[in-house]
Design a protein around this nucleic acid. Sequence first.
DNA 1: GATGAATGAGAATTCATTCAT
DNA 2: AATGAATGAATTCTCATTCAT
Lengths: 208, 208, 208, 208
Amino acid sequence: MPKLNHEAKTKRKKMILDAAFKVFSQLGYNDTTMDHIVTESGISKGGIYTYFTSKEEVFLEIASSRFRKRSELLLQMRQDYMDQTGQTHYELLMRDYLKSILQSLSDPDVLNTAKFSFEFWSIATREPTLNQVAQQRYHNFYQVLAEQLSEGIDAGYFSKNIHLDAVGYIILSTLDGMMHTHAIMGIKIPNHAIDQYVESIMSILLAL
Amino acid sequence: MPKLNHEAKTKRKKMILDAAFKVFSQLGYNDTTMDHIVTESGISKGGIYTYFTSKEEVFLEIASSRFRKRSELLLQMRQDYMDQTGQTHYELLMRDYLKSILQSLSDPDVLNTAKFSFEFWSIATREPTLNQVAQQRYHNFYQVLAEQLSEGIDAGYFSKNIHLDAVGYIILSTLDGMMHTHAIMGIKIPNHAIDQYVESIMSILLAL
Amino acid sequence: MPKLNHEAKTKRKKMILDAAFKVFSQLGYNDTTMDHIVTESGISKGGIYTYFTSKEEVFLEIASSRFRKRSELLLQMRQDYMDQTGQTHYELLMRDYLKSILQSLSDPDVLNTAKFSFEFWSIATREPTLNQVAQQRYHNFYQVLAEQLSEGIDAGYFSKNIHLDAVGYIILSTLDGMMHTHAIMGIKIPNHAIDQYVESIMSILLAL
Amino acid sequence: MPKLNHEAKTKRKKMILDAAFKVFSQLGYNDTTMDHIVTESGISKGGIYTYFTSKEEVFLEIASSRFRKRSELLLQMRQDYMDQTGQTHYELLMRDYLKSILQSLSDPDVLNTAKFSFEFWSIATREPTLNQVAQQRYHNFYQVLAEQLSEGIDAGYFSKNIHLDAVGYIILSTLDGMMHTHAIMGIKIPNHAIDQYVESIMSILLAL
DNA sequence: GATGAATGAGAATTCATTCAT
DNA sequence: AATGAATGAATTCTCATTCAT
């Protein structure tokens, strides 16, 4: 018989995760101590350990919740680009999706998510548990993307000759690269670069 | 009158750096202890401190020596793509340069350098000293790249309408992204992706 | 809401300080390791660091608490040498004060305090933070002493012609010297020396 | 067959001792590293170990050579205070001896010797070998002093009723105390204090 | 369930001493 | 004899995790 109902528990957990996200983003995994999370969350040391078994688990759980966003954004945007007849303008969708991802980097929360994300990969490289999660997230994103592209091909928007796996790989990794340069290296994307980048991706999809 | 001549010292330093590079690449900066470097190098704890003042300095020195490679490769390739009349085939140069960078990731040493490089960025985000070095390296690479592109424009190979800073940013960051996905995320580049990627970059340069 | 109340904390802190005082007195600052304090206090390595931030702070805190004693003794004795009319017999006071300071050196705890005190000065010479504390302690003691002497002059016990600063300096430093010879050099004060010393100081005060 | 003759060896040893004295005085025993001595003396690390077996031995040897000075000064001054008939004015001798000891503290070299001396005692407290040397030095000084006092009594300068051991103890330890306050605590002796101090000692000797 | 004091296994760095050259 | 690079034991301090209250 739990003394705290489910809702209260979830709320407490969220407090911890939000605080941890903040400090992990700012200080990185290694430089973040449990005391940082304690201070930021206002929850006691022992308290954190009733919700999570370790620092790594806190880190992992943040990753799991945050990493859905990119693919969710794509799915959500697809709804917006569907007209009354159920037709989706895939070209416009992709173009705007890529742009909005890169433009959103000026939003501090998105920036922090990007920072966290790369920090996560940095740690995940050496931690099998994390690595698995990270791989899944990549493949999940890949699936969603590939689906849109595939539908875009079927709908006649994209070239039939593109290799889905190659294009998917390019989009995901170059997008990551732009975000990395911006978020981690701290080098801001020049004005024209976003458009130029989007066009170069479109040149592949449209097989210009 | 030093007992070890310059050559012997350099050799010993190299032993330490090579060992450190190996463990840093594998374990990352934080998980690498001086004991790891001691074991791997075969040099005593104190011995390492006669050549370096701290763990960070070892890390930094590796970075400084390894980071020149990418821009050096470009400069070197330019020599190879110059014909007898002193004309350089810039289009071919860029195409082959991008390909060779990405293809070289199958080489374990290059892979480790890539891993080390991202590890370096991860740490450099929080360490002003390292960050400065990292930024310099990026801008140095940018300069070299921009020069080639600029010459390529003048020689009529690339479109006059491209924005050097935008294109430079895209090339550097997307290249990083591909390397990151390959080296850190451990997701190998699909066969066609390299060519496809190169063509998309060329589509920008040629303003197709 | 602290789990340990103030009293319990103070008690634990005292345990550490007592243990540290013991080992510092015996081994000196440099030869005392945190492990010595751990062993002597029975408190874990980390535990000590919850109460003190460094070895130096432990040392300093001991100094701060022990150093008040000499001037406190003088002030307390003054109360005892005051008769019903509020008159203090300053000559007797000074005589007995000097004697009791030197005689107390046979008490092991006083001896250890003396040892600690000189160890403190030895370290304080090179550590600005400690030095400041040490200087303050000297001047505080000087103030208290000068006050008694001044009052003794006004009350007609001591000569009007004495130079307070000179006499104060002599008393403080020669007292220190006797204590040093006894505590550090381990050469016990001969029977008659205490009386002889006290008389020589009185000969100054009384301007014989 | 030594390659270096005795003179050259002695010179080299002196270089080490002078350098070591300088750094020991300034930094104290513990904070002085062999590298400091190496740098200051210009003699190699190994070189020092051909003349001394350890850091402690260097320290000890300095002590042994420097510690004679105080008693030597007294003996030398006695010569100066002897008139043509072989009579020594012991009262004047003692007065001037005490004064010159305290006044000499303004000389940097004497000040350093005093600093070194207290540093030596600080270490000697815990090191039996050093402690023995230190004790010997004290007793040697005591002997010389007692001899002068004894002769002074016989010659009718000093009171027959003084206890040699008590007076000797007082002179040696209070002198040390004044020097300690000046050299270690860094509190300069006030103008009148030296005279006042000397008179108080004389009041004992003359049994005023 | 919550708290926060206590724990102790590391980690980076120092430095007296050694010894091959 | 002299050199100085190499050694490694020792030291201070950190911090994820535990557990008595």
